[in-house]
Every structure is written in structure tokens, then in C-alpha cells.
Design a protein around this nucleic acid. Sequence first.
DNA 1: CTAACGTATCACCGCATGGTGATGTCAGCA
DNA 2: TGCTGACATCACCATGCGGTGATACGTTAG
Lengths: 110, 110
Amino acid sequence: MVMSAVGDVNGAVDVLKAVADPLRMRILTLLAREALCTSHLVEETGAKQTNLSNHLKILREAGLVDTEPCGRFTYYKLRPDALESLAGLLGDLAATARATACADTKRSCP
Amino acid sequence: MVMSAVGDVNGAVDVLKAVADPLRMRILTLLAREALCTSHLVEETGAKQTNLSNHLKILREAGLVDTEPCGRFTYYKLRPDALESLAGLLGDLAATARATACADTKRSCP
DNA sequence: CTAACGTATCACCGCATGGTGATGTCAGCA
DNA sequence: TGCTGACATCACCATGCGGTGATACGTTAG
């Protein structure tokens, strides 16, 4: 069994909540390809600036994105390690589940 | 670039929403190790039966768990492929982001 | 120095969501 | 055949959350 890359499962839930939103997923997909600032994201998504700023705050607090001020602009870039942790956690769960399904492990009915 | 295992990103968001909940994550962790029926999960989590049934319905509709009736009991088991799809999607995003970060790709400010 | 711009924060509101009790359904047992 | 237990569904309600407009803050241009 591979040891999970995410030590705190409870914290992982918070990060998952941040990812589990259509607009934020769209933001992450865009940021995966290139670093962008808020105005770029406004163009790309068509969402209001305030709305985007709120979502970006959630992504920031979840540790999914990094900000890099550039003059009066702010570049947002994706943090690969955060996503890799999630992928590792879910992958480990899947591996455990696969072994369990293979062995048909089940607790007997009471 | 690896092609994502999850064809529909929008559908992936729904599955992520199902995973992004403390109680449901706890259920998934328990089910990863052994198949259980509802009464077992009531014991393990301490949550009310109705509440658990609602959460299990969400997990079922997200395609994360399978049900197997056994007399008047119902066994729940984790579906590894669903989790693997998620892990693949997030892993691909992370890989793309890592390449982007390495090349320092950014769109110029307008 | 001031104006304009990019971005963040705040307060507010309508709506969806999660937990709960009551009730329904189905299977097995006396 | 009625009864009990396992599980699902429904209706209800309080709470939180997402989107929005107003506004504040810092930065560059003129």
C-alpha cells in the first residue's frame, strides 16, 4: 500500500471543496496552461470581477494557487503540489478499494 | 501530455462535489477497506440512519459506490474506477501546471 | 498630484443545501 | 399472516453559500 501524500484527510476535504465548483475548475484548467491575472480570467470566463476575486480567494486559501504581484496586476499560477496531493489521496483510496474488491472483503451482517 | 481518464470535466465536478464532504469522505475511507451495510456505517460514524442514507444516495448517484442487496441488508462497496478517474484528472492538471511553471509560461498583461 | 485602472473587501440577499422526524417499503421470522 | 428490522423517501426548516453592487486600496500614467 502506498502511503498517502496528503497527511491530513480533513484538510484534503477543504481543498476538494475548493476544486468542486464549475467556475473554479475552469479557472484551474486555464491556469494550468499559463499564468494569468484577474483581468485575463474575466475575459476568459465572462464572470464579473468581484465574483472571480471571491473564487480566487477561495483557491488561494486552499493553497491551490499562488499570487505574484506584477505592478498593478496580479498573476495567478497553479500550485502543482496541491493537486498532486489530491491525486495521490484519491489514487490511494482507489488502490485500497481495488484490493478490497478483488478479495471481496466484507464485514458480516450483524 | 497524458490524455485525461475523465472525458467530461463537467461531470467530474459533480463527482468531486460528492467527495468534498467530511462525512462522505469518511464513508469512502471506510468502504475502501471493506464492504459495509448501512447499519455498520451508522455504528462507525455515529450519524443518524436517515442522514447516512441521504449521503449514500449522493455517493450512489455520483457513481462512487455500488449497492449489493443481501437479504434485508444492503452492502455498499467502493467503485475504484470512479476514484481513479478523478485521480487521473487531477494528476493531469498537476502535470500540465508543472510544465507551465517550469517554462514560466504567462500571458502578457494587457 | 490627481486621475484612472486593477484588484480586494464588505454587506446584503435570495436560494440551495444539509440535517431531522415521520412515514413508506420490502424482506425474513414467529 | 402479522410483526420486526433494515433501508429509503418525503416534507420541513434553519443555516450557509454564491452572486452582486458599493466601496476601499495600491499602483502607474499623465
